[in-house]
Structures are given as structure tokens and as C-alpha cells.
Nucleic acid binder design. Structure first.
Length: 595
RNA sequence: GGACCUGUAGCUUAAUUGGAUAGAGCAUCUGGCUACGGACCAGAAGGUUGGGGGUUCGAGUCCCUCCAGGUUCACCA
């Protein structure tokens, strides 16, 4: 519609003022609710062609459109805004077409699909997933659905940080305090068990440091010389040397963690096409660095560590290999990027990683570019804000981390108690009930996280449980369930909800509002995919659910005696439920048929 | 100190990317269930968009400058 209107407006300016207007001067937008009309043309940019007042220019273009464009039924001009009214007939025809389409994403497909790698999750194998990971996973997964819905080929990947000194910590603590404990014997999820030993290590380490300080050592020196720290370093050296005992222990404990992660991923409803392990890419990174050194892209320091000088790009010196020749974080990320390009030849590579690593990704791009990889322009850091608690950042050492599994369980529990209090689902079996509670609890959590601008830090207050009223996932799920209920009742009564070819009656305001909102779906999906913004989808779904609720309260659906009007309302309801489900699907939220 | 990000009602937040009177939810107050589901709807109250300048027909949005907060600048990952 917009395209047609824009063309006509161009035509109008040409006829009326004998000038060609560039596209960006034709600013067409949806009319605000408080004004009469459907689309609004901002006439200010056109004044240079009309050489007239905004009001007169608006009047002239408006009259032209009413005469020459059948869809435009009227207009009004307020200040410099030309509000165009689209005929009900046009809206109803549009609605019929949309309701009969099988694939609601058809209109948002991009003309040239790309291959896009999305990396998300990126856990460490020394502790369980927490609330920050939940945000990461939900954003990553939703980006995948958004981008693939617009026609791109998207590969979901994960990079597992499975090597390094932090991993050795839980291994050592398990050796020392574990007595052969396993997830089975402890009755714990594997990742939680390993996390427990990580905490035990930190405790033991702190004790040793405190003792040394008491003996008169400086804090810095104490941290360096604590015996347990020494053991850790020895263990890391053994790991890198491939010592059988250490490697076996590492493999065993990692397998526990992976089993635990898999369980959490399954509960969250996210998955991956390909998992990369740092332990398998850091060697490639080392090779790349050494090769670049030969080409004088990098330089070697006196102590034989290797650095990149990025001062000409406005960045600092960056270490790429330690003096002892071992790899750092950046080294392995260089290796991972190159390997992924070899694997997929992506057009874009999106890293879903917290904003604390903004600098890291600037450097990563710059170094790859310098090494001659032109595709590094396609690396995108999707940077999101931290999840904080009311008292500040989550600190694993202080035990203030909100555990992912615990939170999911709590949401499920809250959904259960709210539902039971409302007396719902009394005819459901226990399993059916639990499944619905799970969907609602998870829906509340996902929506709560995805509806906010990813760039912003968000605070999560564990004391106040996530709302189920207002702008929330359950509100949208509820609206969906209610529509489904109406449709069930209609089909039991043998009422028709097929798409009629035309609606020969005058539609009411709320009905038109709903149709207008439905029309915006494909446009919203396209924009959200382009801007990497699941929040846009979330807010759209909320608007739609709200609009439907108003419509629902104002007008009878099943009680309407005129067959055509009732059919129309049934189809309208059905289409709304489909679009709601599609939108929430993009966010990874499941919709219960009843709740 | 350098770089980057954020600041909108008491709280959580939106604003079609520079458009009209800044829009919602929570909390507070008022009204509405014999209609197809009240996890709802309607209404009231709540704002100097952190402050100040600038750009123009027009600024929450762009530029400058302060203020506040966060992140980062590691031979941690």
C-alpha cells in the first residue's frame, strides 16, 4: 500500500508542480490514533517544490489523490500533515487476502538471502548457567528465528570455553575434596556439581591467601605464592602437555557439565547446529599469529611475547601470545573465526556477547582485517547489557548468582500457584496441567527478558516475581488461549470461520484498527530482523493482544446474529491468533491452547 | 586519565529511526462479571525526556558541553 501511495504522490507532485521528487522526500507514516485517517504524508519536505504554504500543498496533493487513486477515500490537512483516509473496501480486501495466505512470513523475505552464523551462549565449563546466560541464549535463539524467517540461511553455533586455568580449579578441588563424588552419587546435575567444586576451590584459595597475609606477606605476593595456586599452574601445564590423568579427569568432568547444560538448553528450548570447543581452536589461533608475525603484521617483544600494535586504528597494543608461547582468549577467537569462515563462508557472523566485551570485538575485527581477511567486515558484535540485581552485579563468589535452573523452576512454580488460585484447568490431567504451567512460567520469563532493549542493562529483583498481568508473556498467551476457546466453541456450534471473498458491510472502528495492526506484522518482522531487535516483536505482540482485547470487549462475536458479520469476526479472531502465535514463536515462546 | 554505552512518570519501559498533544504496564484511586474466559476492560492521577546551549518548519532522537551511572583499557576467559 505504501509503495502504491508513494508512487501516486510522486505522480501528483510531478503533475501539480512539474518536479521529480527523490524518494526520501516522501515521508509516509501511519496516522496517529488521535487523528482521522490511515496514512499521513509529511508535506514539509515538499514545500520547496510547491512553493506554497503547507496547508495549500496538502490540500492540492490530497485532492489529486482522492481523484486519481481509488483506495483513497478522503483526506484532511492539519498543519503540515496530510492525513489520507483509505476506503474500508480496500482494508477489507486486504484482510481477505491476508487471512487466506498460508505463510505470513512470505512478505518479509529478503531478496538476497545470506549465510549468517550466530554464535550465542558461550558457557564456561566450570559452573552452571545463570541469568546472564539466559538473556544471552534467548537473544541468540530469537535472532536465529528472526533472521531465518526472513529467508536467510542461519547457523546456530556455540563456543564452549573448556580450557584454561579456571577449568583446572574445579578439577583440583574435586581431586582434593571430592572422594570420588559423581552426579549420580550426589544426586546433582553435573554442571552444578562441578560448580560446587569451583566454589570450594575459591574458598580454599582465599584461606591460604589470608593465612599468608597474616604471616606478613603483601596481598599481591600472597595471591601469587599460595601453594594451591602453584598446583593449579602445574596442572594447566600438564593439561597442555596432554598428561593422561589430567586429560581423563578433564574429560570426565566436562562430560558431566555437558549433560547438565543439555538439560538446561532443552528446558529453555534452545539448540545449536554446531558446537565449537576452545580446546580445538586455540592451536589454529597460534598458527595464525605466528604466520602474521613472519609477515611483520605483528611484532615480538623483548620477552618474546607477541603483540599487535593497533594504535593507528585508535586502539591499544594487544597481546596475542604470552612469553611462554601459550594462547590467550584473543588467540583462540582468531582461530575460531577463521575456522568458521572456512566451514561456512558466511556473509555475516553475529556474536551474541555481553557489552563488557565491546573492546575485545573491536580488536578481533581489526586484527583479522590486518591479517588480510576481508570478510572480517561481516563480523557483528551483538552487544547486550548486563543483568544486574538490585544490589549490583551478580557475584559468584558472594553466592548472589541467580541460577538458570532454579529460576526456570521458580517461574514454573509461580505459574502453577497463580493458575490454581484462579481455579483454571480443573478438568485437566496432572501432566497436562504441568505442561501448561511450564509454558506460562517460561513464557513470562522469556517475554520479560526479550521485551527490553538489548543494549540496556536490566535489573532483576528476585524478591518480586515476574508479573503475569499487563505487558507480559502470560497476557499475550491468555489472549491467544481465549481466542482459541471462542474458535472451539464456534466449530462445535457448526459456525463458519472460512475466509469469505468479500464483506459487503461497513466495518467498525475497532475492527479496522485490528486489521491495520495485523497488516503491520510483516513490516515489523522485516525491521526487527534488520535491526536485530526481538524487543520490537515483543512490543508488537503486546499491542496486538491489547487491540484484540478491546475489540473483544466492545463487540460480540458468537452472539452476533448477522452471519456475515459473525463470520468476519471469527476470521478476524482466527487471524489474530495466528499472528500472535507467529510473533511469539519468533521469541521462542510457546502458546498454550488453554490456560 | 583515554575509549565505548546508558539516563524518559515512584518503579519497569515504548515512541514507526528527525514529525503532530511523549504511549503503555506495575503500584495508587474510581467504575464494570446472568454475554464468547475478569490473567480482562473503561476512567483519574502521575513528565522541564539528567542540566544547559546549538542545528531547523519541527529534537526524547542529530552536534557541542557539563552532571550521574556502567563497562573496558590484563601475560583472566
Amino acid at each position: 500500500m505504501e509503495i502504491v501511495l508513494k508512487g501516486r504522490i510522486k505522480e501528483a507532485v510531478k503533475k501539480l508542480y512539474n518536479s521529480e521528487v527523490p524518494d526520501e522526500f516522501i515521508q509516509l507514516q501511519e496516522t496517529r490514533k488521535d487523528f482521522r485517517g490511515d496514512f499521513t504524508l509529511v508535506v514539509f519536505p515538499l514545500l520547496r517544490y510547491s512553493k506554497n504554504t503547507p496547508e495549500t500543498t496538502g490540500e492540492m496533493i490530497g485532492s489529486y489523490l482522492v481523484e486519481n487513486c481509488s483506495a483513497v477515500s478522503g483526506f484532511n490537512v492539519i498543519k503540515g500533515f496530510l492525513n489520507l483516509e483509505i476506503s474500508d473496501k480496500w482494508w477489507l480486501e486486504f484482510f481477505s487476502k491476508m487471512a487466506s495466505e498460508q505463510d505470513h512470513f512470505a512478505n518479509c523475505r529478503v531478496p538476497e538471502p545470506e549465510t549468517i552464523v550466530v554464535e550465542y551462549s558461550s558457557p564456561n565449563t566450570n559452573k552452571p548457567l545463570h541469568l546472564g546466560h539466559i538473556r544471552n541464549n534467548l537473544l541468540g535463539f530469537s535472532l536465529y528465528r528472526l533472521l531465518s524467517s526472513t529467508g536467510h540461511k542461519v547457523i546456530k553455533t556455540n563456543i564452549v570455553n573448556d580450557r584454561g586455568i579456571h577449568i583446572c580449579k574445579s578439577m583440583l578441588a574435586w581431586q582434593r575434596f571430592g572422594n570420588g563424588e559423581t552426579p549420580e552419587s550426589a544426586g546433582m546435575k553435573g554442571d552444578h556439581l562441578v560448580g560446587k567444586y569451583y566454589v570450594l576451590f575459591e574458598k580454599a584459595y582465599r584461606l591460604e591467601v589470608e593465612k599468608l597475609i597474616l604471616d606478613g606477606m603483601s596481598p599481591a605476593e600472597a595471591k601469587e605464592t599460595a601453594p594451591i595456586m602453584k598446583e593449579i599452574r602445574e596442572m594447566l601445564v600438564k593439561w597442555e602437555a596432554g598428561d593422561k590423568d589430567v586429560i581423563d579427569l578433564w574429560k570426565m568432568m566436562n562430560s558431566w557439565v555437558y549433560a547438565g547444560f543439555d538439560e538446561t538448553y532443552l528446558k529453555l528450548g534452545v539448540d545449536f547446529d554446531r558446537i565449537y570447543y576452545e580446546s580445538q581452536t586455540y592451536m589454529l589461533g597460534k598458527e595464525l599469529v605466528l604466520k602474521a608475525l613472519e609477515k611483520d603484521i605483528l611484532y615480538r617483544n623483548n620477552d618474546s611475547s607477541i603483540w599487535a600494535d593497533l594504535t593507528s586504528e585508535g586502539l591499544d597494543q594487544k597481546l596475542l601470545l604470552r612469553s611462554d608461547g601459550t594462547a590467550v582468549y584473543m588467540t583462540q577467537d582468531l582461530g575460531t573465526a577463521v575456522r568458521r569462515y572456512d566451514d561456512y563462508h558466511f556473509n555475516r557472523h553475529i556474536y551474541v556477547v555481553g557489552n563488557e566485551q565491546n573492546y575485545h570485538f573491536q580488536v578481533l575485527k581489526a586484527v583479522l582485517k590486518r591479517m588480510g581477511y576481508e570478510w572480517s567486515d561481516g563480523l557483528i558484535h551483538f552487544s547486550y547489557g548486563m543483568v544486574e540485581l538490585p544490589e549490583g552485579r551478580m557475584k559468584s563468589r558472594e553466592g548472589t548468582v541467580v541460577d538458570a535452573d532454579d529460576l526456570i523452576a521458580e517461574m514454573h512454580e509461580t505459574a502453577r500457584s497463580v493458575s490454581l488460585e484462579l481455579g483454571k484447568l480443573s478438568d485437566f490431567s496432572d501432566e497436562e496441567k504441568e505442561d501448561v504451567f511450564r509454558k506460562i512460567g517460561l513464557g513470562a520469563l522469556k517475554y520479560f527478558i526479550l521485551k527490553v532493549d538489548p543494549r540496556k542493562n536490566m535489573t532483576f529483583n528476585p524478591e518480586e516475581s515476574i508479573d503475569f498481568n499487563g505487558n507480559t508473556g502470560p497476557f499475550i498467551q491468555y489472549t491467544y488461549a481465549r481466542i482459541k476457546s471462542v474458535l472451539r466453541k464456534a466449530s462445535r456450534s457448526g459456525l463458519n470461520d472460512d475466509v469469505p471473498v468479500s464483506f459487503p458491510f461497513q466495518a467498525l472502528q475497532k475492527e479496522l484498527d485490528l486489521i491495520k495492526l495485523l497488516r503491520r506484522f510483516s513490516e515489523t518482522v522485516a525491521t526487527a530482523a534488520h535491526d536485530y531487535s526481538p524487543a520490537l516483536i515483543a512490543n508488537y505482540c503486546y499491542d496486538l493482544a491489547r487491540e484484540f482485547n478491546q475489540f473483544y470487549h466492545d463487540y460480540s462475536i458468537l452472539g452476533e446474529t448477522d452471519t456475515e458479520i459473525r463470520t468476519f469476526r471469527l476470521v478476524l479472531s482466527k487471524l489474530t491468533s495466528e499472528i500472535l502465535a507467529e510473533g511469539m514463536w519468533l521469541l521462542g515462546v510457546e502458546m498454550p491452547e488453554r490456560m
